[in-house]
Amino acid sequence: MKRTWLHWGAIGCGAFFALYAAQAFASGTSGDAIALEARKIEGEVYVKASSLVAALGGKGSFDPSTNTYRYVPGDVVPDVIEQVGDSVVAVIGKPQGSPARASDRFELAHGSGVIVSSDGWIVTNAHVIESMKEIIVLTQDEKQYKPTKVLRDPASDLALLKITATGLQAAKFADSDDIRPGETVIAIGTPVSFSLRNSATVGVVSGVNRSVNGSYRLLQTDAAINPGNSGGPLINTKGEVVGINTLKFVDVSVDNTGFSIPANTVQYIAEHLRTYGQVKRAYLGFELEESWEAVVGLATNKPMTVLWVDPASSAAKLGVKKGDSLYSLNQKKLSTKVDLNEELKHYLPGEKVTVTMLSNGDIVQRTLTLQAHP
């Protein structure tokens, strides 16, 4: 960490000092602006020492004999791991269809999870529990719980488990729309072996808005994600969950290319599962095909083409037909299926939306009633 000289201001025991190089201290953070308590005296800005420590971590002390303040920056990663550790759980169970032979009695499947509420709701990946029976949730203090509810949403690869517990440390979630490539992130989970639970790896956000064989956008990271990390959190340097780790590319020539479900999608899915027991996805009533540019990941403004229309849908009654093109939904331009799915997260079946389409050579607007996704 770069040394920074601080100019002391004589304002009594309040310990205010001039901060000439706050950027040097803030280099361990995600780069967001930090609001600190301060005063301006004779043209100099003096920042309260306790505000600095609260915002950036570390330790500080004032020596009245020399009228100096000594600040020792904290080590961000260990602090964050310690802060978030109690919110991370291990999920363990027997594989479905596991042989009943005595030699296989210790055969186990496992993954990771995150506490999302103090009363016992846990989020994990749907694929973690898809083929698991006799599920056990193990908290960091090694208490074991059998879930009383198991709710899955394979389309998003997310699931919720409910355990009978109170006073748990719920994780804090970031606004994943604000995440930028290059931010430092930490993956915590139970990789490879159940004995390695609460392991941590560090990397950066390699990319955002990735589309990888899924309904919604994903975050890409180079933090190591291994089998068993699935369902665990990807955390920023503020200790906030930015995503739930879900998959990685595996090949002899591929290194550190993992993906996480963004926090905003996690919260959307979790809220639906808790409220309705399922995700109530809205559906336009017709299927679409992307342009070749969209398929290969190129930026494009080309609209999607209608392939099939549900004859019982509002869309069919309003004249939507195969070969029409979809340009926008409620003025939001759309070029990919993932774009459409992301936009439809804001609506429920039964609500109305206005779509702009090309039909028979004319640009038309139609107000459709959304259906429940089949």
Rank of each mutant, 00 (worst) to 15 (best):
M1W: 11
M1Q: 12
G9K: 03
A22P: 11
F25M: 09
F25R: 10
F25G: 06
G28D: 13
T29L: 04
S30G: 07
D32N: 13
A33R: 11
R39F: 04
K40D: 11
E42Y: 13
G58Y: 02
F62H: 10
D63W: 00
T66H: 05
Y69D: 05
Y69Q: 05
P73T: 00
P78W: 06
I81W: 09
E82W: 12
G85Q: 13
K94F: 11
K94T: 14
G97D: 01
A100L: 12
R101M: 12
A102W: 05
A102G: 13
E107C: 10
S117I: 01
W121T: 12
I129K: 09
K133G: 13
T139A: 04
Q140H: 11
Q144G: 09
Q144K: 15
Y145M: 08
K149W: 06
L160C: 06
L161N: 01
I163P: 05
I163W: 05
T166I: 07
A170G: 09
F173T: 02
F173W: 05
A174M: 01
D175M: 01
D177V: 06
P181S: 09
P181A: 12
A187E: 01
I188E: 02
T190S: 15
S195F: 05
V205H: 02
R210W: 02
L218V: 13
D222H: 03
I225L: 09
G232H: 00
N236L: 04
F249V: 15
S253T: 05
F259T: 02
P262K: 04
A263N: 03
A270S: 14
T275C: 04
T275A: 12
Y276Q: 08
Y276G: 11
V279M: 00
R281F: 11
S291P: 09
A299M: 05
M304Y: 00
L307G: 14
A312C: 08
V320F: 03
S325T: 13
L326E: 02
Y327K: 13
L329A: 13
N330C: 10
P349Q: 04
G350Q: 01
E351T: 01
K352H: 15
S359F: 01
N360F: 01
G361N: 06
D362K: 15
D362N: 14
I363L: 15
V364Y: 10
Q365S: 15
L368S: 01
T369K: 00
L370N: 03
